[in-house]
Simulated scan of single mutants.
Amino acid sequence: MTQRVELATLMDRFAVDGLVTEYAVAVDDGDWEAYRRLFAPDGRADYRSAGGIEGDAGQVAGWLARSMELFPMRQHLIVNRRLRFGVLDQDRGDTARVQADYINPMRFAGDDDGSTAPDFVCGGRYAFALVRTDLGWRLREVVVQEKWRRMPQPRQEPAVT
């Protein structure tokens, strides 16, 4: 590889990594317009393994906006990112795939400031398919593969003696 090709590859890696981070931030912050902008025009997302829907980015953003009202506090952590460029047929370096693990702690809405509301935590793996567009890298597909979840336990009243 020439230094120019290596530099271009590094720049693409940074851009793809940044897009995955922006995805997490958009969901955590409830910025559904930013979420939609991360996708290519034909972009789709599939949250069915986590009890959600599959559809185009606009449909899924609407569903997420309603669903996330239950969880006013969210913090996506996306780790162990594995990136490959050009894995689609007839590709010339304008596509990428990322597999990344996630853990997603969220807090249920409460009657007060939320500090006593119970937590919900889930984890799994994302499969991102990306495409280079005139606007830069965009998501073509996001598939959530939820592997586990921990629901809040009912509060136990102390035994009266």
Rank of each mutant, 00 (worst) to 15 (best):
R140A: 14
Q90P: 00
V16M: 08
E69F: 00
E22F: 05
D89N: 05
L19M: 10
Q59L: 07
R92E: 14
Q59R: 10
A109F: 04
S49Y: 05
V16E: 00
A40K: 11
N104Y: 10
E22Q: 15
F71V: 02
A109G: 02
P118E: 05
E141K: 05
L88Q: 15
V143H: 08
V131R: 14
F120V: 02
R13V: 05
A159T: 08
R132A: 13
R4N: 11
L77S: 11
T95L: 09
Q99C: 00
G114A: 04
W63V: 00
R13I: 03
S49Q: 13
K147N: 07
P158D: 13
D101E: 12
R66A: 14
L70K: 13
V131T: 14
G110M: 08
D101F: 10
V160T: 11
R37E: 15
A45V: 03
W32G: 07
G43Q: 11
G58E: 14
V87A: 09
D94L: 05
N104F: 10
M1D: 12
D46C: 01
D17K: 04
R140P: 00
T95I: 06
R140L: 13
E146A: 02
V60W: 01
I103M: 10
W63R: 00
F14A: 15
E22W: 10
R44V: 14
